[in-house]
Design a binder for these strands. Structure first.
Length: 461
RNA sequence: GGAGCUGUACCCAAGUGGCUAAGGGAGCGGUCUGCAAAACCGCGAUCACCAGUUCGAUUCUGGUCAGCUCCUCCA
């Protein structure tokens, strides 16, 4: 079936046609591992997971690569900036590499809890320095670089289509701001560093043909994507903030080296907003992590579901109220019973709905619409089918209902039944509260009392 | 200054040139219950404002206002 994606390069929806039939090469910009990922970061990985699952749902074999940025990068091009990896190292009294490995593990724990499929390959920048040096060498051979005491720069003026994808208007770009320290040795404001030199304070250093130093931020993605996916590949994605600088520079340095197109489809996820503002890693510290939501009693699936209710190209406003609403909605999905499936024994209708929903999904990942439709239809079987894409672990969660009640709960039910037959409502209600606190729903109906396990943790606020 | 995004009911949010503007949550009413809860049924919007295009606009175009993001590391 036809697949359509919004391509940032053309600023329009385009039919997706991979280079090799049936196969997709997918590169996603990964985390810089100097701190915990915040939920805004995680939204983007949920979007990319949705993309990957949609491709696979359509029968494509996906090769998914995501970089791990474990090299520190200066906060500015000049020497005065502070390196986040090193700041973290000092803060936690560990080596930069220890910091990197620690937060890399934390990152994958978060993505695993969110049921985000692990990339086939997650190369680390520090393990691909050779490839980066090689790529810089190719750029040098092509005459696109120049060297200053600060390092090796990419000369953006010599790359014809610089900023085309981002539609940059270079003359209008702001070049002087208080926070930005200008480097007089730069030829053009938009030139960017390929290899830093003469930074004796920087802890992470490698030797290179230009002298000891460390790579610029952008070069790792070019070097590693090329190594694992080839010089041209199908889809590259990341956060929307990467369009003007990071991805612009990736294109320049990749195509400047290879003289081939770098990427066919660019896809970018919008920001998660909190109080109408973007969540900042540096401002927020380690608050706003997935763990903080878990500590508050939310199941990670609640956050995943919350994100899937909005389109990836639109901003999404996060609040605990909104998250609670998502939890209630998700609970409803988990509680759907097979017996009441309106599409049971209606194979034709099931297939028709399946096709209709897939068409919606394939129109630029309109998963929120699919979710709305699934709620309206109310077919557990259809939910389960699309859970391959939703990744909400519906089967696993609803299976909880089948687990036998613990003895302690059964004892309480017996106690409560006695109290109820004695019309001792105070005691009955107290026991009920106790059972509910243990994670169960208590239902008194005409056929007596039923106790059901809650299918989703409830947050305490 | 340059580039871009957003504004839909109490909250989150989808969507469309015209027929009932999805869905979830909250709220209210009802069924059920000893009372609740859960579940089920029922109930909600002149789509920021102004002008234009059009037979017809929430949807297209222009403007205004408000908010946000990027041009510094950043999902």
């Amino acid at each position: 079936m036809k697949l359509t994606f919004y391509n940032t390069a053309s600023r329009s929806k385009q039919e997706f046609v991979p280079m090799v039939e049936g196969h997709v090469s997918l590169y996603c910009c990964g985390p810089t591992v100097y701190n915990y990922a915040h939920i805004g970061n995680l939204r983007t990985y949920i979007f990319e997971d949705l993309l990957r699952r949609t491709l696979e749902f359509n029968g494509y074999k996906v090769k998914h690569v995501m970089n791990i940025t474990d090299v520190g990068h200066m906060t500015t091009d000049a020497d005065a900036g502070e390196d986040k990896m090193e700041v973290a190292a000092r803060r936690e009294n560990r080596s930069p590499l220890e910091i990197a490995r620690f937060y890399e593990e934390a990152f994958f724990l978060d993505t695993q809890r969110l049921n985000i499929l692990r990339p086939n390959t997650a190369p680390r920048a520090t393990e691909h320095i050779v490839q980066m040096i090689e790529l810089i060498g190719r750029l040098e051979q092509n005459g696109l670089t120049y060297q200053t005491p600060e390092g090796v720069y990419f000369d953006t003026a010599l790359f014809e289509n610089y900023g085309k994808m981002a539609r940059l208007n270079l003359s209008g770009q702001r070049t002087e701001r208080d926070e930005v320290i200008s480097d007089d040795s730069k030829r053009n404001p938009s030139d960017f560093m390929l290899w830093f030199l003469n930074k004796p304070h920087h802890l992470m250093q490698w030797s290179s043909p230009w002298g000891p130093g460390y790579p610029g931020w952008h070069i790792e993605c070019s070097a590693m994507s090329m190594q694992y996916l080839g010089e041209t590949f199908d889809i590259h994605c990341g956060g929307i903030d990467h369009i003007p600088v990071h991805h612009t520079n990736e294109i320049a340095q990749s195509e400047g080296a290879t003289h081939h197109p770098f990427v066919n489809y660019w896809m970018h996820g919008e920001f998660l907003l909190m109080n109408k503002e973007k969540i900042s890693k540096s401002k927020g510290g380690s608050i706003n992590t997935l763990q903080s939501l878990v500590d508050a009693g939310y199941d990670p699936m609640t956050y995943r579901y919350f994100c899937l209710q909005a389109h990836y190209r639109g901003e999404l406003n996060f609040s605990l109220d909104a998250l609670d609403a998502a939890a209630s909605g998700l609970r409803k999905i988990y509680a759907l019973s097979e017996a009441d499936d309106p599409l049971a024994n209606k194979e034709d209708e099931f297939q028709a709905e399946h096709k209709r929903l897939l068409e919606i999904l394939n129109d630029d990942l309109s998963i929120s619409q699919v979710i709305g439709q699934l709620h309206s239809i109310g077919s557990r079987r259809l939910w389960l089918e699309f859970d391959q894409v939703l990744g909400l672990q519906i089967e696993e969660h609803s299976r909880r209902a089948e687990e036998p009640l613990p003895q302690s709960v059964q004892d309480l039910i017996t106690l409560r039944n006695t109290a109820r037959s004695n019309r001792n409502w105070a005691e009955s209600d107290a026991i009920r509260d106790q059972i509910i606190a243990m994670g169960f729903d208590v239902l008194d109906g005409p056929q007596g009392t039923q106790v059901k396990r809650k299918l989703l943790e409830e947050a305490v606020r």
